[in-house]
Nucleic acid binder design. Structure first.
Length: 485
RNA sequence: GGCGCGUUCGUCUAGUGGCUUAGGACGCCGCCCUCUCAAGGCGGAGACCACCGGUUCGAAUCCGGUACGCGCUACCA
């Protein structure tokens, strides 16, 4: 347990959509906050104007909300330490860089990108680490004001001192040490007046009283820059926790090229938020026992940063799918009804005439045969409309010369029944089979084909009951005309 | 190239010096159930714990080195 109420943040860039890796980072932050009675803050890091995407912030917020990760402070939810969008905080960053420049902990740099590029190439050729050479550090006050007067573009760089050891005490990785000689004089303020991630991140984390920085491992290498900034400003350094990366099957950092990475893609495919959250929570964390099925509130209670793994985790779709199945099975029929009606509304069967009562029966029949609600429509469209075709392999295998007369007899048998139940269909069939002295299967298989067009699915008598007597007879008759051997 | 991080079944993981002939889950295979497809039940294959060396009575677990993988190395985050 953390003694003081911690404050954590999820700080995405609005570049279009919420990445599943981002979802996990957000989730771990959220879980940590909830577990320790802390605050979960959303901050938008939109300092790269070249990568801005229209509507991305709204999309991010909607998706986060869909997943159930509501933030305590953030855009539209002022906690007194806003604004929570970095592009609205430019004067703040300016103020703090000025302070650093005054104390000579940062300096103006007028180098052109051409010179920088050349420098990098030269260093690479000689096998050196590519690093800024402090060329502009020695500019005099006069030279600087002269250049500023001439409107020469400039950036502000961090003035890193050599030969210092910088220690990071990471909750997940333990102590990590860097020598300041490998830390570049990072640009803090870009020539367009916007801060870089490094500056904005540190300033905001401090101003927003962030106690724990929980973020992806890709940030570990730049953490020394951040530590230096905290030290230069004289600020307390937050605790760090660098999360293992989410990986493609080839172990590279999870990327778009190798599959879906946007949370909205998974949502659109029909994954339940419960399954996605559960799955992603287990990618890099476990409670230490064999339990794998969790709801969000249960995760909140069990989560511990100390138990997060160090190694990256391959994002395995098959496991996610089985997770979806598991969560689907736990849903009540009524919950599934809502989801099914949503899917139906945007399907070919939107003008179906089934009552909620019938839909509930369809759900009961199909539930354990699907990984996604939409598969009810995809795999069992016959509940909503007469089969448009008959599976030819099944016809070949199940439709025999005697099938027509058997089905005919079955029609006659059920014709006599009144409001038949599942058992009545079954009894009728058994009786026919007995009369003609064939196995039940000899009638069942062609019947299933006639009524559904396919060879698999729920119990035949369940299908009959859901369709009703009239519809069942009608379909058999149509099949008798259409199916030729 | 430099710096950093990592390495247990195909994949996600349990394991924090003896409980381990390394446990679970997904996937795969087989059997049972069965009108089909699933689900479910039972069983199976699958990890010389990356490698080498050290510490120890004893190591997947501690230490060192090597290899491999990944990340960072931008006026991107």
């Amino acid at each position: 347990m953390i003694s003081e109420n911690p404050r954590v943040r999820f700080a995405p860039s609005p570049t279009g959509y919420l990445h599943v890796g981002g979802l996990r980072t957000a989730l771990y932050n959220y879980l940590f906050a909830k577990k320790n009675n802390g605050a979960f803050i959303l901050r938008i890091e939109d300092t790269d104007r070249t990568r801005l995407v229209e509507g991305a912030v709204e999309n991010l917020i909607t998706t986060l909300k869909w997943a159930g990760l509501d933030y305590d402070e953030g855009p539209g939810k002022d906690g007194g330490l806003g604004p929570y969008v970095q592009s609205e905080r430019l004067t703040i960053y300016k103020k703090y860089t000025d302070e650093l420049v005054q104390q000579k902990k940062a300096y103006y740099c007028f180098c052109t990108s051409d010179r920088l590029k050349q420098l990098r190439e030269d260093q690479q050729k000689t096998g050196l680490q590519s690093k800024y050479d402090k060329h502009c550090l020695h500019l005099t006050e006069n030279e600087i004001s002269e250049k500023l007067k001439n409107n020469e573009p400039f950036v502000i760089r961090l003035n890193v001192q050599p030969d210092e050891l910088i220690h990071i005490d990471d909750i997940i990785r333990g102590e990590v040490t860097f020598n300041s000689n490998v830390v570049d004089d990072q640009i803090l303020l870009k020539s367009d007046g916007y801060p870089t991630y490094h500056l904005a991140n540190v300033v905001d984390d401090h101003l927003m009283k962030i106690t724990h920085v929980i973020r992806g491992e890709e940030w570990l290498s730049s953490t020394p820059k951040h530590i230096l900034l905290y030290q230069y400003f004289g600020w307390e350094i937050p605790k760090f926790a660098h999360l293992p990366l989410l990986l493609n099957p080839d172990k590279s950092k999870l990327s778009k090229r190798q599959g879906d990475v946007a949370v909205e893609d998974y949502r659109a495919k029909g994954y339940l938020k419960e399954a996605l959250v559960n799955f992603v929570a287990l990618l890099g964390w476990s409670a230490g026992d064999d339990r794998e099925f969790y709801y969000l509130d249960e995760l909140c209670r069990s989560f511990a940063l100390e138990r997060v793994n160090k190694a990256g985790a391959v994002f395995n779709i098959e496991k996610l799918q089985s997770m979806n199945f598991a969560h689907l099975q736990k849903k009540s029929d009524e919950e599934l009804l809502i989801l099914l009606k949503e899917e139906l509304a945007s399907s070919d069967f939107k003008s179906h005439s089934l009552s909620d009562e019938k839909l509930l029966l369809v759900i009961q029949a199909m539930k354990e045969r699907i990984n996604f609600v939409k598969e009810i429509i995809l795999n069992a469209g016959y509940f909503f409309t007469i089969p448009q075709s008959y599976d030819q392999d099944a016809v070949k295998k199940r439709w025999t010369l005697e099938s027509p007369q058997l089905l005919q007899k079955f029609i006659e048998a059920i014709q006599k029944t009144d409001n038949p139940l599942k058992e009545d269909y079954e009894n009728a069939l058994h009786k026919v089979a007995e009369e003609v002295a064939v196995k039940n299967a000899a009638i069942i298989h062609p019947l299933r084909l006639a009524v559904s067009g396919v060879s698999g699915g729920p119990g035949l008598f369940d299908i009959f009951f859901i369709l009703g007597k009239e519809e069942t007879i009608k379909r058999i008759n149509i099949a008798l005309e259409k199916i030729k051997t």
